[in-house]
């Protein structure tokens, strides 16, 4: 894997091609394709069950795809080509690929038996084998960045939802990923905590982080997104620059959806 330093324009960081995904007999992704360039912020929206979260989970191979291709930095994610057919990579090799992709979950998924600081250093220590003092110094900087410099020793159970999610963002950033995936990062939060998380995400986008965000926060989409992708029933229905998406949606389904959520 090339690290985040290998910034070359032209080579897309993510290429999704004709991806199909089934859960049993349920066809959740029906030929999805998209491309993400370095530094882009993509917001994925769409109604329940449209496959947004599944697509996100396919990108870092938390879910296997049944057809199609996903490339990360030009390399097939989770697979290698053998005689023209995709063969799933060994678990260790997939783990290596994932180091480049940070993920933030709806339910935070912080490790409850570790302190905030230990949550953030878990990846650098046990995956990247960084020295403890380096990992902790970096973790404290990240705590500062997400506005929680005093919470290093707190356990997740002692933090509010908004604080937990900010720690979760710091945990993902500690791996210095080239790409960040956000799976409805504010959907499980009480309203007054949503802003503190979105502020961190905005800051990240301003720093040039490549992000794919599944969210219903249209305010965030307008402020941060380069492109908005609308999914419905396992397909990408519309894809447009943020301003054009809201002012001149092309597709009837998009207009209906926006009508429902923009009131």
């Amino acid at each position: 894997m090339s690290g985040p330093s290998g910034t070359t324009s032209g080579q897309p960081i993510v290429e999704v091609e004709n991806v199909h995904k089934y859960f049993g007999s349920l066809h959740v992704l029906k030929g999805v394709g998209m491309t993400v360039q370095r530094g882009e912020v993509i917001v994925l929206i769409g109604p329940s069950g449209s496959g947004k979260s599944t697509l996100l989970r396919c990108i870092n191979h938390l879910e296997k795809i049944d057809e199609g291709r996903i490339r990360l930095n030009g390399h097939p994610m989770g697979y290698r080509e053998a005689a023209g057919r995709p063969v799933e990579l060994r678990e260790r090799e997939v783990a290596k690929q994932r180091q480049d992709v940070g993920m933030v979950f709806q339910q935070f998924n912080l490790f409850p038996h570790l302190t905030a600081l230990e949550n953030i250093t878990a990846g650098p220590l046990h995956v990247l084998r960084q020295k403890k003092e380096d990992a902790e110094r970096n973790a404290r900087q990240l705590l500062e960045m997400v506005g929680l410099p005093n919470k290093a020793d707190a356990y997740p159970g002692q933090l509010s939802g908004g604080q937990q999610q900010r720690i979760a963002i710091a945990r993902a950033l500690a791996m210095r990923p080239a790409l960040m995936l956000f799976d409805e990062p504010t959907s499980a939060l009480d309203p007054e905590m949503i802003t503190e998380v979105l502020d961190v995400m905005l800051k990240l986008s301003e720093q040039g982080m490549t992000m794919i965000v599944v969210t219903h926060e249209m305010g965030f989409a307008k402020a941060a997104a380069d492109r908005i992708i609308f999914m419905d029933e396992g397909r990408i229905m519309e894809e447009a620059a943020a301003d054009r998406f809201f002012t001149a949606p092309q597709h009837e389904r998009t207009r209906q959806f926006l009508g429902k959520i923009l009131h």
Binding site: G46, S48, K52, Q107, Q158, L159, E184, S187
Partner: peptide, 28 residues
């Protein structure tokens, strides 16, 4: 108390093959 609540919800959610069912409730 807090942890159990959030983690419990997390389990239920992940278990449902992530069909984004909570989505519509939480809008701008």
């Amino acid at each position: 108390a807090e942890r159990k609540r959030t983690n419990g919800a997390g389990t239920a959610n992940v278990g449902s093959a992530r069909l984004d069912r909570r989505e519509m409730e939480h809008d701008l």
